[in-house]
Design a protein around this nucleic acid. Sequence first.
DNA 1: CCAAAAGTGTTAAGGGTACACCCATGG
DNA 2: CCATGGGTGTACCCTTAACACTTTTGG
Lengths: 235, 235
Amino acid sequence: MSTLISSVDYLPGISIDCVIFGFHDNQLKILLLNFKSTDWLAVPGGFIKESENLEEAAQRILEERTGLTNIYLEQFHVFGDRNRRDNEVMKSAMAAGGNIIGPDHFLMRRFISIGFYALIDFTKATPTPDVHSDTCEWYDIKEIPTLVYDHSLMVTKALETLRFFLDEKLIGFNLLPEVFTMNDLQNLYETILDKKLLRTNFQRKMLSLGILERLDKKMTGAANKAPYLYRFTGK
Amino acid sequence: MSTLISSVDYLPGISIDCVIFGFHDNQLKILLLNFKSTDWLAVPGGFIKESENLEEAAQRILEERTGLTNIYLEQFHVFGDRNRRDNEVMKSAMAAGGNIIGPDHFLMRRFISIGFYALIDFTKATPTPDVHSDTCEWYDIKEIPTLVYDHSLMVTKALETLRFFLDEKLIGFNLLPEVFTMNDLQNLYETILDKKLLRTNFQRKMLSLGILERLDKKMTGAANKAPYLYRFTGK
DNA sequence: CCAAAAGTGTTAAGGGTACACCCATGG
DNA sequence: CCATGGGTGTACCCTTAACACTTTTGG
């Protein structure tokens, strides 16, 4: 039984690639797969079914390739340069996986890829490689190896988009526990933006956004003032 | 000789649609084509050749369908909903144009469309309908009829993008004469943003952007102070 | 009472808004 | 000298940045 992808199932010439950012404990990572039996790394991608809307396809692709379910993804750019894919890479990758494909194969054609991105807590998800990959792992954003095709460009562009819309998209991303301290939130911002923020001003800015509800204090047992806990109101 | 589009020439299932904004004398318009022998209106769109990058394809499509040359276009969104196109519209449109196409025809398949937009001076371009259209005309932005498919949504989304990036994109758009007055520039802004701006503050803001060079005064012959002329420095 | 972290206040700088005022032009 | 429109000054507010100060906690 071959695992070879066939063109009858999918829209031809269009792919979706997902840049998944993972945050936890002051670390920002991205999720990468390798091509089976090779060292080539790529962001999880796949193809669109006739019956799917783009967002649905992106969700399914992510689930099939990494096991991550119910992740809200958003499109950020289309990558369509004529030479964005080196077909020799795909050919070798398929060969390494045990599939010999000819020059007229579906996968050898030009592909235009729609980039989607998401941000999640990487401890809340257990990525699992699919049949086309040996590994499906988190890589620190500051130590990303070279990626296949134009995937390095995709990651760069996705990160720009994430930083630009961080305030607006924060609630939906669901990265923090139900309740959290202002310090937790600041660590999240500092990690994603990759810069230090002033604690006192950060507090005021967040409160002024009107998306936080202040709850009881959190007694940590440490010898210092107990911080308030907060919750997103979701308004 | 048939003008029917064949799938051998183009990437299947992907189209490009161009939202072209035209400005002049306090008027903002968009360019629309009809489907030959019908009342259906659409923004100019087309398909991508194997040899083209996306931006090149968008330029060529615009030129072929409207006669407009050398227009710099930028992508703003991908439209891919499963039901975004009503195939009966396409079928009837092709029939009205003298082409009967079956349910298996290339054009009857699902299409995902990449939206591109541009902003030009509508007096500097003479739009000409191609063989698939009877008319290729400017429509005032405030009086846009219902468009086919999801093209009304495309226009809305493109207009949001245009307004959002107006400051940054202004120079490239080449909408004003080589030299112009601050009043000319303000009219452009007010028309595109669809709101009045304070003359005095607008002046300061534009000068603070550092993209204008002040030249001689312009003697209009009117009974009032002569305004300075300005030029974009392009820095 | 001390160290450490959380929370609040205060000041200065900068940008946006509104409007008053001065300047040029030709009738 | 007046009407008209162009250009500058100024006062106010809000936001941001920087930092001093106060409060809370457990040792």
